[in-house]
């Protein structure tokens, strides 16, 4: 009973979003050599620039160095200056070893916090992208959590 009472207290105290909703990840292929990852960060939340990590599958496909935009400098007593993002972050990722029409899975690790004083552990999210045919232009954006699913959360 005590356990149940304690759980209820938390729910009332901290109406926080799950990490994957606070930091909504989507991606698209701009062409068969460039992927674009987008994070839409909910108001009151932020992500750390140096905690991003990206990986691509299957074997054979390789990612170049991600082009991360400059963040806002936040002074941290322990780690020195750290860069954080709010709002929307767009990251371009050079892709090699993949062909038009091929499907790739782009995995993104991110880590962030809420202004209310809570941090989330590093979160891993994935999207599967079909690379466009040569000259076909960017693919449609693929969301890690389809909007439909959010209606029930």
């Amino acid at each position: 009973m005590l356990w149940l009472a304690a759980s209820t207290a938390i729910a009332a105290e901290a109406p926080l979003l799950p990490a994957e909703q606070a930091f909504r990840y989507s991606a698209r292929a701009l062409d068969n050599r460039t992927l674009e990852a987008v994070f839409v960060i909910a108001d009151g939340y932020y992500l750390y620039r140096d905690k991003f990590a990206f990986a691509v599958a299957p074997d054979g496909a390789v990612l170049g160095v991600p082009e991360l935009p400059a963040g806002k400098i936040k002074a941290d007593q322990f780690f020195g200056n750290v860069e954080t993002y709010r709002g929307t972050v767009v990251v371009k990722l050079p892709l090699g070893g993949a062909a038009s029409g091929q499907s790739v899975v782009l995995t993104a690790d991110s880590q962030g916090c809420a202004d209310v004083g809570v941090c989330y552990p590093p979160t891993r999210q994935k999207v599967t992208l079909a690379l466009p045919a040569a000259g076909a232009g960017p693919t449609a954006k693929v969301e890690a959590i389809p909007p439909k699913k959010r209606w029930f959360q």
Partner: peptide, 28 residues
């Protein structure tokens, strides 16, 4: 299992002398 449903930090648990959980707190 102690109510930290988002697995976020900090999360504190106060346990009495009898080993019972009397308070849990997500956030400061």
């Amino acid at each position: 299992l102690l109510g930290n449903r988002l697995a976020a930090l900090p999360f504190s648990v106060v346990i009495d002398r009898q080993g019972r959980v009397v308070h849990t707190q997500l956030g400061l």
